[in-house]
Design a protein around this nucleic acid. Sequence first.
DNA 1: TTGTTTTGTTATCAAAAGATAACTAAAGGA
DNA 2: TCCTTTAGTTATCTTTTGATAACAAAACAA
Lengths: 143, 143
Amino acid sequence: MDSNPLFKKFVAFSAAVHQITNDMTKDVKPEALTPVQYKILEYIAVSQPVTLSEISDCMNMSMPNTSRELRKLTEQGLLIKETDAEDRRRQGISLSPAGQAMVDEVFRRVAQRVSGRIAHLTEEQRQEIEHALDLLQERIFYV
Amino acid sequence: MDSNPLFKKFVAFSAAVHQITNDMTKDVKPEALTPVQYKILEYIAVSQPVTLSEISDCMNMSMPNTSRELRKLTEQGLLIKETDAEDRRRQGISLSPAGQAMVDEVFRRVAQRVSGRIAHLTEEQRQEIEHALDLLQERIFYV
DNA sequence: TTGTTTTGTTATCAAAAGATAACTAAAGGA
DNA sequence: TCCTTTAGTTATCTTTTGATAACAAAACAA
């Protein structure tokens, strides 16, 4: 409830994470991509290979809209669709070399910014942070 | 860099926070609001009173678009604009009682969901989490 | 075999969000 | 005073995103 200080911290923390990650990826996103397209690419990057239905589910998009955006990304040569041999309705979607290169570049630039916040820390402090990330992901931010 | 395991954790963690908070607020957002309008309302809630310029900056929106959305929110009776006495160009924007009630209700429902993840923890574990939130916000996710 | 479900596509329309130009009014500085 | 900057508004246009209907093909179950 409102009286719960932990909840307030949770809200403030989530807001901070959103703001920081937005700022970090802000002028790093490829211009050729819309925000939604970038999100999809990022999702594929960490989950590939993945089906259209899975993208649709995880990103709360309708199948028609997901299909449309995937088509645009494919037309830009960023994705590879491969029909599943066992179930020919399904297609495994993954990044093409060009798509992978694009995502890698974005991650590299974000990593630079993050490392600006980590660089001056001692090894012990880094381990504290790593531990804190693990703890929160295990107890609160699990999927 | 890619070789940095801390960075990978950072990426995974940020993604998890985004996904969880999206899911938590998903069907809790008032229907009368568009996603952007809800985001603005949430921002005002934690920062009020705030100026249009500040909203525009922090949310990466142009002033004209910010102005338009604020007008819509004001028309719905959710905001109060009060001209600054010292600088009559600026206006302090805050939530009206109706706006505050709406945000409170959303927060209350999100809190319920969060507490589902906290309820079974011991007091000691909660303090660990609280400490982890503080640490990360201080070292990584600061604004 | 015949229906039914799952997976995905195409087309179309509506709403939301972004971009830009042209403007007002107050503040501040020379 | 006059010029410039800052804060915000209005109007208009484009792009992006969301929603829905109608469809095809593969899988599956009776």
